[in-house]
Amino acid sequence: MSGNMNLTLKIWRQANANAVGGFVTFNVKNISPDSSFLEMLDILNEELEAKGEDPVAFEHDCREGICGACSLVINGRPHGPLARITTCQLHMRHFKDGDTIWIEPWRAKAFPIIKDLIVDRTSFEKIIQAGGFISVDTGGVPDANAILISKDAIEKATDAAACIGCGACVAACKNASAMLFVSAKVSQFAVLPQGQPERYQRVQAMVKKMDEMGFGSCTNTYACEAECPKGISVRNIAQLNRDYFNAKLKSENVEA
């Protein structure tokens, strides 16, 4: 049962990190409105493969909006025109037959292109490695119920922890800033009792690494929140700022 949508795709293609890229036009036919956006790209790729041509490289994995692998700026919008979903959760019923769709990779200095629509998001890894954790070794921890956490705090922490690390915030931000990503992790631990001992050390280390990786700074346009598939709030950025000032004022570490 195939569908009835015919579409024109303008896709960014780039052979590798150093190659010059450009848009290539493809036509896809008989797309079902119930298919997902990535299934539509699968169909394109299968056609290309059948012809012995290089399929369009794009990243994807879980296809249920949680792994954070899929990306794509679709008609200028990270993860497409709908709010609060990832590209893999976008269905073709939200497009019209005959539409022309522009598909671009995330664009940021800190996310260099690897091939076609795939970018390198290792900079996010580096930020987490710099401090996005609670330093606890396996074993030797108290009983889980020994740490009481209010429902409010756990809701706040879970809201922040829902970040999937896809990078849409960076892609959407006119400054390619990673503040929403960083603030989500900082806030999660800032509201939990387990996160307190390292609270100020963590925020300084993560911000320092974020700056090193070449992300821009936040100018409070809040495009990140609008495009975040998990609706992570910019209030987390406020929390990050607050913690950063406090860290600078209170912590006696003059090296940070």
Partner: peptide, 18 residues
């Protein structure tokens, strides 16, 4: 901030999100 995105987008959707 300009340097943080050396290559811009072909289609600019910023009016939809900010």
């Amino acid at each position: 901030n300009k340097k943080a995105r050396p290559v811009g987008y072909k289609v600019n959707g910023s009016s939809e999100n900010s």
